[in-house]
Design a protein around this nucleic acid. Structure first.
Lengths: 236, 236
DNA sequence: GCACACATGAATGTACACAATTTTTTTCCA
DNA sequence: TGGAAAAAAATTGTGTACATTCATGTGTGC
């Protein structure tokens, strides 16, 4: 029952389905996205699937390897650090703009998002919590009013979700929710000099909770086994 | 004589051709890019052209209107301001990183780029000058070493070129070349506190030289005439 | 038994044909 | 003659067939 949507905006619909699945971590990094299989799932031809995959690839959410198909991106440690650095920079700018444009009304909406996020987390709905946390940051970008920066942030939020899926240290919740509340307080007051450092530290804290020093995700298999075989060769 | 490249990397080649043509302002904003025509020009099927157009569309360099084809993007005044604001933010970050990573060798390369840029401008090669100026900023991003920010800057540089094509005030050269030299001096010294404001003012100067207050590019025709007809209706 | 070469299968890359939509031209009526 | 409706042409959207490439499995020679 794939609920046949009207033929209009098929791509958009399929794109959203795949995008959400990745954002909510139902599709793990490295998962292969074969064109035939996806076409069968969504009842469209490979043509449409290819279009969706290319779009996701431009957003760096999936990786298309020539002649070898598409997989969900698996950011390396270096990429992860680049992404967090970019987020600190861009969210600092967004926060500054938001402080200039904030109204009581939009500040209230932000607080509503925070409450909803808490609700999901307390109900054990991790996926929903991650999504809502991202929506908080996106709403801030909307308040800032710069569409270009908003587009970049959307990409960064999604890729951050991929990074968390790969490098989350076991038994750690990632985002401290109090951060968001303090942030709104400062932004509501239009106090950029307080809000910007808060945002910077918030994202830094996110990064610090991850296990980015430990080891790579997939490629370390190769490294591990090559070392093992070397040791055995030495012993023999 | 379309110099048949090997079948490998056809997209990449065609993408570069179109991209360069837009960057060097040989394709004006608003120009229609029909699939059949482009396919004939490059001797490939529409399939390949569509792939290229979709990529350019995601980079906001062309706009794809559903069922109505692709045109070279024509940024509005609001978009233009957003893009300059984003550039100030991102290039500030890049400049700071470059100050930390600079070596004498890469600083020398930057100065070589400046000289080449000057050479082109003095020979009256405007297109080449614009391209070289963009390459200077891109090289800085490479030195900074953050691939994500580099990708964003590439987009912003191209879109800036589109903005200049639309809103350049007549008889004004856009980029002051001395700016670039002062910038390299500060970066070579690793002096971020000097370099970052220099970069910020450099981009601000670029924006200020444009005619962003005057009027929109194409749509104002519509607005003007609709107002005129209203007035005439009142008068009659 | 091991390494290299070859054959097979599955998946992606491209071209083309047809369907759906938009734009232009033609036609008809007031 | 002007304008609106309808027909025609042109353009984009989608499905499908075929070409090409890569990965895996098999066989042969040493």
């Amino acid at each position: 029952m794939t609920s046949r949507k009207p033929k209009r905006n098929q791509d958009e619909w399929i794109y959203q389905e795949v995008f959400d699945a990745i954002l909510e971590q139902r599709l793990a990094p490295g998962t292969k996205l074969a064109e035939d299989a996806m076409g069968e799932i969504f009842n469209v031809s490979r043509t449409v699937i290819r279009k969706v995959l290319q779009r996701l690839s431009h957003e760096r959410v999936v990786e298309i390897r020539p002649n070898r198909g598409a997989v969900v991106s698996a950011p390396s440690v270096d990429e992860a650090r680049d992404i967090f650095a970019a987020r600190r920079l861009i969210e600092a700018g967004i926060t500054r703009l938001a402080c200039a444009n904030i109204t009581d009304e939009s500040a209230d909406e932000l607080e509503e998002l925070i409450r909803e996020e808490d609700r999901h987390y307390h109900q054990g709905d991790r996926s929903g919590g991650i999504r809502l946390s991202g929506e908080f940051h996106m709403r801030l970008a909307e308040i800032a009013g710069n569409d270009t920066l908003k587009g970049y942030l959307k990409e960064l939020v999604t890729r951050t979700s991929l990074i968390i899926a790969q490098y989350e240290a076991p038994g750690n919740t990632i985002c401290t929710h109090n951060d968001h509340q303090e942030l709104v307080d400062a932004i509501r007051a239009g106090d950029a000099e307080t809000a910007v450092p808060l945002m910077d530290r918030h994202i830094q804290a996110c990064e610090d909770k991850l296990n980015l020093d430990g080891g790579e995700a997939a490629p370390d298999l190769k490294a591990i086994f090559s070392r093992v075989s070397l040791e055995r060769t030495d012993a023999a």
